[in-house]
Design a protein around this nucleic acid. Structure first.
Ligand SMILES: NC(=O)c1ccc[n+]([C@@H]2O[C@H](COP(=O)([O-])OP(=O)(O)OC[C@H]3O[C@@H](n4cnc5c(N)ncnc54)[C@H](O)[C@@H]3O)[C@@H](O)[C@H]2O)c1
Ligand SMILES: NC(=O)c1ccc[n+]([C@@H]2O[C@H](COP(=O)([O-])OP(=O)(O)OC[C@H]3O[C@@H](n4cnc5c(N)ncnc54)[C@H](O)[C@@H]3O)[C@@H](O)[C@H]2O)c1
Lengths: 211, 211
DNA sequence: AAAAAGTCGTGATATTTTTCACAAATTAAT
DNA sequence: ATTAATTTGTGAAAAATATCACGACTTTTT
């Protein structure tokens, strides 16, 4: 809760910057300008400079930014030095894809437990992540605070309520259901059907710029 | 290109409204107020009324909105009367989850073709969607204009260029790569790692309102 | 028939986000 | 050394988005 003056729009871009800085660092690049970064992440360079400026003067005029320094700065700002443990509820098609993906590569996040209602899945594991029965949420969730929700929409509300009771305060919700939670809980929706639909809408109704 | 004055933020919410209206209609509800809708979709009621107002006066003072009428209106606005065909490139973990999901339920969108580089997948089908070899994009894409991209990040740029050459003008990009496309092509990024990371960031750095 | 309650549509205002544009500082070139 | 080229950080302006608040009209209640 140190810097609560950082705009939400900025906060959402930080992980993106971090990833690209990581790439640059691995490529052995020592310095980078907001212009170069802009081309890579497709964000206006003035916006990038503004974003960085909320954290102080991180660059040097006429030079740009030192990759290693900036990376280090964001690593601690984004708490990348410690692993964040996350649980997943609903190891179906989408959930399984997430379980097989390693968020550890660039982000220090690991899905450590999965829960499902399907007895035939319980007790097994997917890529090393054990699957528990959903009835055991209360017993097994421990102090995990962030959850990925990939259950059928009809189950979302009830599961969310149970999660909140267990102390979860962040939910990444992939179901189409808009869940109701207390105000201290943060829910981010990723609604794939809406994304697809709105892309189609934009294509049909917005004038396409031809360069 | 009829109504290009509709704000992007509004356009992104339309599919959401549409889905909830569909639900209401199936439940047999005849009328709905912006307040009710607001509670369901978690968007301020004034914002909803403003959004609707871009399309004219769709409601009635003191009454609200007629569900069937509104639904019909959005159906045609969102081109839900015709099926939009979409292709998917990269039938891996994430791609397979999408192939198994039916976007037809609420949205009139269907993934009709998939492409992959893995010879062992080519020729098969997943839930009725045939998988072609990625080398046959030029031969098989036909006049599909919208593509879901779920290949490894390293392949994204090259594939995107080929797609654009074939006339694709909408790409839903799930890879972490920020692809470069001509300005007449629209790319929507869904960056799951960034979403997860930024949720974690918010939780750690933003004051949690306790109601 | 009158009063009360409900609800839209929207001008006005507030908030958030993006972009412009330039002085100041630094580096690179001559 | 001087000059030219870069590039930051940021005030100011613009653009986009969200919200307030109320007149006008409709429905419901008494
Ligand atoms: N797959 C996609 O491409 C896609 C696209 C858009 C939205 N979604 C949404 O994502 C969610 C998951 O989709 P999916 O395709 O993986 O579905 P799925 O049916 O494959 O998976 C759902 C999983 O949840 C489990 N489950 C059911 N009830 C449960 C409960 N009460 N507690 C815990 N687990 C429970 C099921 O056993 C199953 O494993 C759905 O809400 C769906 O609408 C998926
Ligand atoms: N699975 C996740 O949870 C997740 C999370 C975040 C991001 N992503 C991103 O989504 C993308 C797909 O992830 P995934 O987990 O499904 O990976 P995956 O490896 O399971 O699937 C990739 C698929 O693409 C195919 N492929 C490889 N090269 C190709 C080419 N040139 N043309 C066509 N197909 C090709 C592979 O054969 C494979 O089937 C990746 O870019 C990944 O970074 C995935």
């Amino acid at each position: 809760m140190d810097q609560n003056k950082i705009p939400q729009a900025t906060a959402k871009r930080l992980p993106l910057y971090y990833r690209f800085l990581n790439n640059l660092n691995q490529q052995g690049k020592r310095r980078v300008s907001s212009k170069e970064l802009s081309e890579a992440v497709k964000v206006d360079s003035a916006t990038i400079r503004r974003d960085f400026s909320y954290f102080g003067a991180l660059g040097k005029k006429g030079y740009g930014y030192n990759v290693e320094y900036l990376l280090g700065f964001f690593r601690s700002t984004l708490d990348q030095h410690e692993v964040t443990e996350v649980a997943l509820i609903g190891a179906g098609n989408l959930g399984t894809a997430f379980l097989k993906y390693s968020f550890l590569k660039n982000n220090n996040i690991r899905i450590t437990k999965a829960f499902d209602a399907d007895a035939s899945k319980v007790g097994k594991d997917i890529d090393g992540v054990p699957i528990y029965h959903v009835d055991d949420i209360e017993k097994e969730l421990d102090n995990i605070r962030v959850v990925i929700l990939t259950v059928p929409a009809s189950e979302a509300e009830e599961i969310a309520e149970r999660l909140v009771k267990e102390g979860v305060n962040g939910i990444l919700n992939f179901t189409p259901a808009r869940i109701t939670v207390p105000s201290h809980v943060r829910v981010h929706h990723i609604d794939l059907a809406v994304e697809l639909q709105s892309l189609v809408y934009f294509l049909k109704h917005y004038p396409l710029e031809v360069e």
